[in-house]
Structure formats: structure tokens, C-alpha cells
């Protein structure tokens, strides 16, 4: 028996909106520690890892570890029917091939339940090695989304270079070139507006902008985004999910032939 009750149902709505266009079908893994997912996009260039810890749920009952295969587009369609303030409960009986999403309005005067068929998805989990990052960038998530959107109107790949001056996002295309430089700025009113660069050493990597733009669909989840870079390995773009966990996007770099 599985019964997960999330009072801040809007978090789950936002999570699905941020991954449904990147990944089609995925297995959600439920265990005592929490509700998680790890899946690659169809081209195996990007990987998303989601964790919602059990403590973040108002009620978390997971009698045994189970993995539920879902079509994320269909799941997103059902979650769209939940109000932003609704409590969302996810239920599945042992051995059942369906999952039920229950939406309760805050005043409990409206209760809806949507039942979705589960799928068999064979996907092995990848081992993600802990890495020492050469540069860690923490910046307002809206700012990162704006930069990716603006640059993708000029070119389709971005070179992200971190030096002690700051971080530079560069692109070039048929109509010309664009460079955006963000400097460290910690003298701000609110901490979430700061741009922090922890950079033990300079690094420069090239990525496809369309994936980064896809990752920024997670912007509503967090005011800040953490971008961890190291030479020759995937970048990690992480959005924290309010005291519950995180959604991490890994993107493989483009390497000079």
C-alpha cells in the first residue's frame, strides 16, 4: 500500500511541468526515504534526478519499495486538474496496475480523484559519481532562465566560462554573437537575489541551449538555481524544492572534435 499526502500540492504540479517535455515515460521509485525519479531524455544527452524526501509529506506510507512506471504527459494532464492550493494524495494498492491522484481543496469542500494506468518501463538507474566541481554558480533562477532564452534567439550552443571576474555565457549564430557576463554580487537586499561564484579554478564548457531552456521550466520551483561545472563532465543544474528535496538536471557537454 502506498499513500503519499502532499499538502503543498503545487510542488508536484510544478515538478511535472518541468520534466514532462524532457522525458516521456519514467519510473517513480518509492521507498521509506522518499519519492524519487531518475530518467534520461530520449537522446540520452540529459538526465533528470528528482527527490522528494518522505519528511516533506504530511503523511507518507510506503509499505514496501515500489517502482511505478508513468507517462509523464498523462500524469501532467491529471495534475493540471488540481488547484494550486489543493492537497494532493498519491495512492496505489500493492500489485495494482493503476495509481490514483486525489485532489482536496483547502476547505475540503471539493475532492477529486483521477486514476491512471501504470506502465512497464525497463530503465536501469545510472550511477552518478560525486564530483569535485571546478566552479559552482548560485544565481537567481529567473536570471538564468532569461539568459538561456535570450541567447537561444542568437545561437544554439552556449559556452559557459567561469573566471575570477565572473561567469560569461557566449553564443554565436547566423545573425551575430552575444555575450552575457554576470559578476559575483552578494550586496543585495535578499539572499535569493545574490550571484555567488565559488570557483576553485577557471572552467569553460559548451552546451546545447535547447536542453538548458528545457531545464529552466523548473524555475517556478525555486528562486535560485545552482549550476555546478567541471571540465569535461556534465553540468548539474539544480533547483531546490522547498525543504523537501531537489530536482537536478545533468547535461553532457559538447566537446571539440
Amino acid at each position: 500500500m502506498l499513500e503519499l499526502r502532499l499538502v503543498q500540492g503545487s510542488l508536484l504540479k510544478k515538478v511535472l511541468e518541468s520534466i514532462k517535455d524532457l522525458v516521456n515515460d519514467a519510473n517513480f521509485d518509492c521507498s521509506a526515504t522518499g519519492f524519487s525519479l531518475q530518467a534520461m531524455d530520449s537522446s540520452h544527452v540529459a538526465l533528470v534526478a528528482l527527490l522528494l524526501r518522505s519528511e516533506g509529506f504530511e503523511h507518507y506510507r510506503c509499505d514496501r519499495n515500489i517502482s511505478m512506471g508513468m507517462n509523464l504527459g498523462n500524469m501532467a494532464k491529471m495534475l493540471k486538474c488540481a488547484g494550486n492550493d489543493d492537497i494532493i494524495t498519491l495512492k496505489a494498492d500493492d500489485g495494482s496496475d493503476t495509481v490514483t491522484f486525489m485532489f482536496e481543496s483547502p476547505t475540503q469542500d471539493k475532492i477529486a480523484d483521477f486514476e491512471m494506468r501504470l506502465m512497464d518501463i525497463d530503465s536501469e538507474h545510472l550511477g552518478i559519481p560525486e564530483a569535485e566541481y571546478h566552479a559552482i554558480l548560485i544565481m537567481p533562477s529567473a536570471e538564468f532562465a532569461r539568459i538561456c532564452k535570450d541567447l537561444s534567439s542568437i545561437g544554439d550552443t552556449v559556452v559557459i566560462s567561469v573566471t575570477k571576474e565572473g561567469v560569461k555565457f557566449s553564443t554565436r549564430g547566423d545573425i551575430g554573437t552575444a555575450n552575457v557576463v554576470c559578476r559575483q554580487n552578494t550586496t543585495v537586499d535578499k539572499p535569493e537575489e545574490a550571484t555567488v561564484i565559488e570557483m576553485p579554478e577557471p572552467v569553460s564548457l559548451t552546451f546545447a541551449l535547447r536542453y538548458l531552456n528545457s531545464f529552466t521550466k523548473a524555475t517556478p520551483l525555486s528562486n535560485t538555481v545552482t549550476i555546478s561545472l567541471s571540465s569535461e563532465i556534465p553540468v548539474v543544474v539544480e533547483y531546490k524544492i522547498a525543504e523537501m528535496g531537489y530536482i537536478r538536471f545533468y547535461l553532457a557537454p559538447k566537446i571539440e572534435e
Binding site: 534520461m40 540520452h44 544527452v45 536501469e124 550511477g127 563532465i233 556534465p234 553532457a252 559538447k254
Partner: peptide, 14 residues
């Protein structure tokens, strides 16, 4: 030009 790598080049199946 630069060649797009896949994530599986870096992360191995468990």
C-alpha cells in the same frame, strides 16, 4: 565543430 556527448559516456549503468 563540437560533438554532443551522451550522458551515458559519463554515468555508468549501475
Amino acid at each position: 565543430g563540437s560533438k554532443q556527448c551522451t550522458i551515458t559516456k559519463f554515468f555508468s549503468k549501475k
